[in-house]
Amino acid sequence: MFLINCPYCGERDQSEFSAGGEAHIERPKQPTELSDDQWAEFLFMRKNIKGIQYERWNHTHGCRKWFNMVRDTSNDKIHAVYKMGEKPPVK
C-alpha cells in the first residue's frame, strides 16, 4: 500500500488508482506508411524498467482524470506527479 498525490484531488490511497502503462508514447503520424513491425513496436512494445519509469495513471475511484507519474519501480518511490499535456520533469 502506498499513497499517490493526485494532481487534482490530493493525496489518496493507491487502491483508488489504476495504472495505465508507459507514458509519452506518441502515435505515429501516418500509420499506413509503417511496416507491421514498426506498427507492432508502437502498439505493443513497452519498457519494463527496474528503476525510474514514466507512467500514466488514472484516479479511477476519485476524479477519474488521467495524469503522469515518475515512479521508481524498484521501491515504489514517486518522484513526480504531473498533469496530462505537461512536460515531464527532467531526470
Binding site: 484531488c9 489518496r12 487502491s15 483508488e16 475511484h61 476519485g62 476524479c63
Partner: peptide, 10 residues
C-alpha cells in the same frame, strides 16, 4: 466532498 471507495464500491 470526496469520491472514494466504501467496501470496494464507488
Amino acid at each position: 466532498v470526496t469520491q472514494t471507495l466504501v467496501n470496494h464500491i464507488d
